[in-house]
């Protein structure tokens, strides 16, 4: 049996990853460690797993791999602890909030001879897989430009740290840019070379100290440009968390994709609310299975720490551009 652990329940995705680990064949979920004992204990109880009151205690049980679901700025310390204990790592996105942290994580895992995977579940979404296959077959011709949105509700009612800069590293931009940046890198096999962005707090003025609105333009080394709306612009009462939509304007026409449209519209009599309830496939499960398989097969995972760092760098460039009102070249100095 492969032993797995979870480090921190800070992120809202922790529950889905825990469920995926429990469902993965040949995997035992040892438990969850959290330095916030109340949070960790409640999570462990709710998901029927063991609570460890320290990360060291969890790592002492020699997990083969860990899922890091801490606050964004704490990913590095978690990854370094795990690597030193010889545990393979899958880390929630964004991989890091500074280049130095991201590089240190990659180095620590390399030195320890463990995998570092970035949790980009979009790569395992069946629609994204189908788009990638179509692009590789070339049936729409070359991509000329992309119009993308990854808009959502402000998640700070679920976890307050999302809008505390010391823990999150930023707001909507750091929360959302990496998903689409990674997806487009993967779709095109190209790297971002320039970023322009307008970023501000337009939706929660006086309430939060991080950005909530962002429009980003990325240019890739194949000449393709892509705009991305990364805003927390869905109201708190919006009937679903948000969206990922990508229009690929191609030589042979338009390839329009919307990844979270597999929903039921439910007008709930019990809550008097409209909800869009997903019936989509569970991409988190496929992602966790890939992490497990990479360990079992002694190979690199399909999505690496380097992928996470490239996407994080796009975000950092966007913040820099928003401050200077100038396009910013990558790689960042």
């Amino acid at each position: 049996m492969m032993r797995m652990g979870i480090m921190s329940a800070a992120h809202v995705h922790t529950a889905s990853y825990a469920a995926s680990l429990k469902a993965a064949p040949g995997v035992t979920l040892l438990g969850l460690a959290d330095d916030d004992a109340a949070r960790g204990r409640a999570f462990a109880a709710a998901h029927g797993t063991r609570f460890y009151d320290s990360y060291a205690a969890l790592l002492a049980d020699k997990p083969h791999g860990v899922v890091i679901c801490s606050e964004n700025t704490r990913h590095r310390e978690m990854a370094e602890m795990a690597a030193q204990a010889g545990a393979h790592v899958i880390c929630e996105k964004p991989l890091a909030t500074t280049l130095a942290d991201g590089r240190a994580m990659i180095q620590a895992c390399r030195d320890a001879g463990v995998n570092l995977m970035t949790a980009f579940p979009m790569r395992f979404h069946p629609a994204a897989v189908a788009v990638k296959a179509s692009l590789d077959r070339g049936e729409m011709g070359a991509i000329r430009c992309c119009n993308c949105t990854n808009q959502g509700r402000n998640p700070d009612n679920l976890r307050p740290w999302f809008t505390q800069k010391a823990l999150s590293g930023g707001g909507a931009a750091i929360d959302h840019i990496v998903h689409v940046a990674d997806l487009l890198r993967w779709y095109m096999g190209a790297e971002v070379v320039e970023v322009y962005a307008e970023i501000d707090n337009l939706f929660y003025k006086g309430e939060i100290d991080v950005d909530s609105a962002g429009l980003v333009m990325m240019t890739f080394d194949n000449g393709v440009f892509a705009s991305l709306d990364c805003s927390w612009s869905r109201p708190r009462f919006y009937p679903i968390w948000g969206n990922v939509k990508i229009d690929l304007i191609c030589a042979r026409g338009l390839l329009r994709t919307e990844y979270f449209i597999q929903n039921l519209k439910v007008y709930r009599g019990d809550t008097k609310q409209l909800e869009l309830q997903s019936w989509a496939s569970n991409a988190d499960q496929v992602m966790v299975d890939e992490f497990v398989a990479s360990i079992r097969e002694g190979r690199a995972p399909a999505v690496t720490g380097e992928d996470g760092l490239e996407a994080a760098e796009v975000t950092l460039a966007a913040y820099r551009s928003a401050e200077t009102h100038q396009p910013v070249r990558l790689p960042l100095a």
């Binding site: 430009c145 240019t219 304007i249 042979r252």
Partner: peptide, 11 residues
Amino acid sequence: ERVYARSVTTE
């Protein structure tokens, strides 16, 4: 106040 744009010819 400020405009930034990219354009392309597709076909």
